[in-house]
C-alpha cells in the first residue's frame, strides 16, 4: 500500500519544528514502526536525516515507544503500544499524521522523541519502599488479600510511556502518578511511607509543569495497559488523609 505521512520534524529542543510530508510504501504485514524504519532507510540512502523516534522492546512491555497518530496516542488500537500497531489497520492511499507527545512537562528532544525524565523524578519522589536488603524474604511471609494484590498488579502494569499525559486535554500526569502511588499504597509493604509518598509525589508532579486533572477520562481510554482512573480517586483520597495526618 502507498501512504502519505505527515511527520513532525524538529532538529533540536530549541528548533521551531514543522510537518514534513513523505510518501511511504508498506505491506500489511509490517508493524507501524517497521514502516517508519523503511522510510528512514530511504531517507538515509538519499543522505537525509532519518525521523527520530523512540523504541526498544517492540513487544509492548518497556514503555519506550510513543507517538500520536491521527490524534491518538499510540494510534487507533486499544490496549496497544505503537510498536504493536500493525499496518493491516491501514489501506492504500491513507493519510497519516504523526506527532510527538505534546506537553510542556515532556520537552521535545528531536522529531518524535520527548524527554520523559519528569516521570523519573515523580517516581524518585516516592515510588519506592524501604526494606532491609540481604537475602530475599520468604514470599508468603506477609499475607496480602487477593483483591488488593490484583488491584496493585493492575496499577503496576503501568509502563510509564506517557500516553496518559499525551491524551489528556489538560496534559495532566495524574493517571501516571496515581498508578505509581497506588501499586505501593495498596500493599502492606507500602504502608510505612504511604503519607510521605503521596505528598512528595504530588508536589513533584506539580513542579513538573503538568496540567490539572478534570476527570475527562481520556487517559484511561489511551492507556495501553488499561489503567483505570479509580487509581486517581484513590490518590485524591490518600492526599486528604496525608494532609490530615501531617498537620
Amino acid at each position: 500500500m502507498r501512504l502519505k505521512l505527515h511527520v513532525w520534524r524538529q532538529a533540536s529542543p530549541s528548533d521551531r519544528g514543522g510537518f514534513a510530508t513523505y510518501e511511504a510504501e508498506a505491506s500489511e504485514h509490517m508493524s507501524f514502526l517497521e514502516m517508519l524504519d523503511v522510510v528512514n532507510e530511504e531517507l538515509e540512502s538519499k543522505g537525509q536525516e532519518p525521523i527520530a523516534f523512540d523504541s526498544d522492546c517492540r513487544e509492548g512491555i518497556c514503555g519506550t515507544c510513543g507517538m500520536v497518530i491521527n490524534g491518538r496516542p499510540h494510534g487507533p488500537w486499544k490496549r496497544t503500544t505503537v510498536c504493536q500497531l500493525h499496518m493491516r489497520e491501514y489501506s492504500d492511499g491513507d493519510e497519516i499524521w504523526i506527532e510527538p507527545w505534546r506537553a510542556d512537562g515532556f520537552p521535545i528532544q528531536k522529531d518524535l522523541i520527548v524527554d520523559r525524565s519528569a516521570f523519573d523524578r515523580i517516581v524518585a519522589a516516592g515510588g519506592y519502599i524501604s526494606v532491609r536488603t540481604g537475602s530475599a524474604p520468604e514470599a508468603n511471609a506477609i499475607p496480602v488479600a487477593r483483591e488488593k494484590a490484583e488491584k496493585a498488579m493492575d496499577a503496576a502494569a503501568c509502563i510509564g510511556c506517557g500516553a496518559c499525559v499525551a491524551a489528556c486535554p489538560n496534559a495532566s500526569a495524574m493517571l501516571f502518578t496515581s498508578a505509581k502511588a497506588a501499586h505501593l499504597n495498596l500493599l502492606p509493604q507500602g504502608q510505612p511511607e504511604r503519607h510521605g509518598r503521596v505528598l512528595n509525589m504530588i508536589l513533584t508532579m506539580e513542579a513538573e509543569q503538568f496540567g490539572t486533572c478534570t476527570n475527562h477520562g481520556a487517559c484511561e481510554n489511551a492507556c495501553p495497559k488499561e489503567i483505570k482512573i479509580e487509581v486517581i480517586a484513590m490518590l485524591n483520597r490518600d492526599y486528604l488523609r496525608a494532609l490530615l495526618k501531617a498537620g
Partner: peptide, 11 residues
C-alpha cells in the same frame, strides 16, 4: 492546564 500544553496537536 492551558500552560501545560503550549504547543497544540495538529490532529
Amino acid at each position: 492546564s492551558w500552560a501545560a500544553r503550549g504547543h497544540k496537536y495538529r490532529k
